[in-house]
C-alpha cells in the first residue's frame, strides 16, 4: 500500500476578523520527512502548525493530516500527533515524571505502559535524575527537553515542533539538536518552525520559506541557495557614509547587490574576483568579507529584508 502524504494542504487559509494570517498556502509533507517552516515572527508559521494540530479551525482551503480532516476528526488526528508548543506549558504542579505519565493517560495509554514509556523518555532526554523534581526547578533547556519527551509519549506518526530552540542558550540548543537528529534518523515525520537559519539548514530535509502568510519558496536548503543566491557573497563596509549613498558605485561588480543598513552585499560566482575589482575602484573600504551564500541570503532575496531583525 503506497503511503499517502502525512500532511497535505491546498489553498489553506486562516483569517482572524479582517486580518489574514495564512493566505492560501499549498504544501505536502511525506512520511519520514523532516520539514521546516522558515519565516519571521508573524509569518503564519505557528497558526499553520495549530491547524495541522487540529486545535485551530481553518477558514478556507483543504487540509488532510494522516489522511484525516482535522476539523471533523480532531481527536483521531491528535491521537497520532506529538506536539511541542513554543512556550513549553508543562504542568507546573507536577513532577517531570508525572508530567509524562499524566500526559500519556490523555491518550488512553495504560498506567503501567505510561510509566515505562515515561521512564524510557526521561532517560532518552537525559533527565532521569530529575524525574521526581517539580518542573519549576528545571532549567530552560531541561524543560524544553521534557516538552519534547512529552510530545513523544504516544509514539506519534508526526511530530510538530514550534520553535524548539527559541530562548535556549547555545549549549542547551545543541543538546536539543542532538535529540532532533536522532528523531530524524528514526524515520519519524517531523515538522518544525524556526527563524534560525542554522537550525533550518542543519536539521531539515526540506524547507518552506513563508512570509506574510504565503509560501515564497520551497526546497532542500542547498537547493534553495543554489536557486536563489549566487555561490558567493562579498560583504563590503566603507569607512564613511551610509551604504545607501555609495551602494550604486558597486553596481556591475557582481550579479546583484543588496543594501543593508551597515553594509552592502555583492552576489557573485567568484567572490575573490569581486574583491580584487573592488580594490581597483579605490574606495576607502573598512572591511571586505568573502563567504559562501547562506539561507539568510535566500531570505533576503525573496523578501527584501533580514529574517531575524536585531
Amino acid at each position: 500500500m503506497p503511503h499517502p502524504p502525512a500532511v497535505r494542504a491546498t489553498g489553506l487559509v486562516k483569517t482572524y476578523g479582517t486580518s489574514t494570517v495564512v493566505d492560501g498556502i499549498d504544501f505536502e509533507i511525506h512520511p519520514g520527512e523532516f520539514v521546516g517552516f522558515l519565516g519571521p515572527n508573524g509569518a503564519g508559521k505557528s497558526t499553520t502548525m495549530r491547524m495541522i494540530g487540529s486545535v485551530t479551525r481553518r477558514s478556507g482551503g483543504d487540509l488532510a493530516v494522516l489522511g484525516l480532516d482535522p476539523s471533523t476528526d480532531g481527536p483521531a488526528v491528535r491521537s497520532r500527533l506529538g506536539v511541542c508548543p513554543q512556550d513549553d506549558l508543562l504542568d507546573i504542579e507536577l513532577s517531570s515524571l508525572q508530567n509524562l505519565t499524566t500526559y500519556a493517560r490523555y491518550f488512553g495509554i495504560s498506567r503501567t505502559e505510561s510509566r515505562s514509556r515515561a521512564l524510557e523518555l526521561l532517560d532518552y532526554m537525559s533527565l532521569s535524575d530529575r524525574a521526581q523534581d517539580r518542573v519549576a526547578s528545571l532549567s530552560g533547556g531541561m524543560r524544553r527537553r521534557l516538552t519534547i519527551a512529552r510530545a513523544l509519549v504516544n509514539r506519534p506518526d508526526v511530530v510538530l515542533l514550534d520553535e524548539p530552540t527559541t530562548g535556549l542558550d547555545p549549549q542547551a540548543r545543541h543538546l536539543v539538536w542532538e535529540r532532533l537528529y536522532a528523531l530524524r534518523d528514526s524515520g519519524t515525520t517531523v515538522v518544525l518552525t524556526t527563524h534560525f537559519m542554522d537550525e533550518a539548514e542543519q536539521l531539515c530535509d526540506r524547507l518552506l520559506v513563508v512570509d506574510k502568510g504565503t509560501v515564497v519558496a520551497s526546497g532542500a536548503p542547498r537547493e534553495l541557495i543554489d536557486r536563489y543566491a549566487s555561490s558567493e557573497v562579498v560583504e563590503v563596509r566603507l569607512t564613511h557614509g551610509r551604504p545607501a549613498e555609495w551602494a550604486a558605485r558597486l553596481d556591475g561588480l557582481g550579479e546583484r547587490t543588496e543594501v543593508l543598513p551597515d553594509r552592502v552585499l555583492v552576489y557573485a560566482q567568484d567572490g575573490d574576483a569581486v574583491a580584487a575589482a573592488l580594490e581597483r575602484l579605490g574606495l576607502d573600504v573598512s572591511s571586505v568579507l568573502v563567504r559562501r551564500s547562506s539561507l539568510e541570503d535566500v531570505f533576503l532575496r525573496l523578501t527584501g529584508r533580514a529574517l531575524v531583525e536585531a
Partner: peptide
C-alpha cells in the same frame, strides 16, 4: 498555569 493548552493537543 494554562495546563489545558497542551492537553487539547491530545485526543481530549
Amino acid at each position: 498555569a494554562r495546563i489545558y493548552v497542551p492537553i487539547l493537543n491530545t485526543p481530549l
